[in-house]
């Protein structure tokens, strides 16, 4: 009905947060790592705002394509109130129920997957830096 609105709302918040963080970041942390089997190269560590960008892209991409599905099913229309379920109280209650269950779960799952990506990338970064002293 309108479950995509929950991840879309999260996307708005995380996009603003990423912009604020980016404006406050000064110098990116630089480290020496071995990339592509080349020698040691000085590389900038990916900032948190860029990693937050991954979540933004997942949320915007997903909710955008889901919005299209809702247009396909006639649940979103180009005239007021834009959501067909919002035109009568019974459907509106059902819509809010769906947003609070399916919509919230969607936002939580996408965020959990992003958290997993953060954890994996952190392990890869640490491994790349740990491997250096042994090789030199």
């Amino acid at each position: 009905m309108a479950c995509f609105l929950v991840p879309a709302a999260e996307a708005v918040v995380t996009t603003i947060a990423a912009k604020v963080m980016k404006s406050k970041e000064v110098n990116p942390e630089t480290v020496k790592v071995q990339i592509d089997g080349e020698g040691l190269v000085e590389a900038e560590k990916l900032s948190f705002s860029k990693k937050l960008g991954w979540l933004n892209k997942l949320l915007w991409g997903g909710s955008g394509l889901l919005a299209f599905e809702h247009v396909w099913h006639g649940e979103v229309v180009p005239w007021f109130p834009f959501l067909t379920a919002a035109s009568n109280p019974t459907d509106a209650a059902e819509m809010l129920q769906e947003m609070s269950t399916v919509g919230v779960t969607m936002a939580v799952l996408v965020t959990a997957v992003w958290a997993g990506m953060l954890a994996v990338s952190s392990v890869i970064e640490k491994k790349a830096q740990k491997a250096l002293p042994a090789k030199n």
Partner: peptide
């Protein structure tokens, strides 16, 4: 990003 985002959301559905 587009397709993974949508896939995750449809998985919940």
């Amino acid at each position: 990003w587009l397709y993974w985002g949508a896939s995750l959301m449809w998985l919940v559905d």
